[in-house]
Amino acid sequence: MTNTHTLNKTAKQKKLIIKSIMWAIMSLFAVLQFFPLIWVTNFSLTKDSDVFTSGILKVPDPPEWQNYSLAWVNGNILKYTINSMFVVGTTILIVAVLSLILGYAFTRMKWKFANAWLTFILIGMMIPIHTTLLPNFLIFRQFNILDTPLALIIPYVAFSMPLGVFIMTGFMRSIPRELEEAAVMDGCGVMRIIFQIILPITKSAMVTIIVMTFINNWNEFIMGATFLSSVMWKTLPFAVYEFSSQYVSRYSVQFAVMVLSALPSLIVYICLNEQIAKGVTFGAVKG
């Protein structure tokens, strides 16, 4: 009796130790991941010169809230966030619809060159968006769409769609065909099958596509910097870039702009975190 008891106890202790080690490692990594955000928030509230402190962080005393008001007003954050949302939102919508339709056509419909065309589209995944920067500049000038959102949406869509099709075709292959058979019997058209029957089932793949398209394009700024010039359409990342050169000597204000610009995606992420995790799960495993 006593023997088993001690055995249980040591086993328990061992488990506890393993668990604490696990916690320690996880926490350490979490700090490494999270620290920069703390850091930038911290120094967005201090004086400009506090960045050079000998400590790691510095308690803002008192917090310099005016950094934020300056950043909000002069950084034009609201305007640029809306621009970014418009551009990325439109991109996501087009990519989602095209991936769905193409995914269906490639996995369900029967036609001769399906594989060749699918390869043609998927190869787009391997081509870096930046290689089209120079020619697109001349092309967009010809069509007079420089300095309009179209100049960003076209390349964003073209380079996000292949990944979307990749995820969608992978996903659709796992859907049983019985569902549509019934629909076809009922005389449904292809469009109705896609949007009424297939779309609801592909929800998780859709979420994956939306998340990936968002992440890939939300931060993009080389295209933005090259194709846009007026305040009218400039997107958020480029605005931060521009602002940090405008307020060269105002470190704290720069940091405040960074915090403000990080907020939209952070909020979206924290609110949707569960769905994003699930969505990416499905897409990744099936894709």
Binding site: V97, L98, L150, I153, F195
Partner: peptide, 22 residues
């Protein structure tokens, strides 16, 4: 998406529908 697809019924190219607007 539905809205776009409705447009797409009359217009075979949903992408251009979105683009025209902008």
């Amino acid at each position: 998406i539905m809205a776009v697809s409705l447009v797409a019924c009359g217009n075979p190219n949903p992408a251009s529908a979105g683009e025209d607007k902008s």
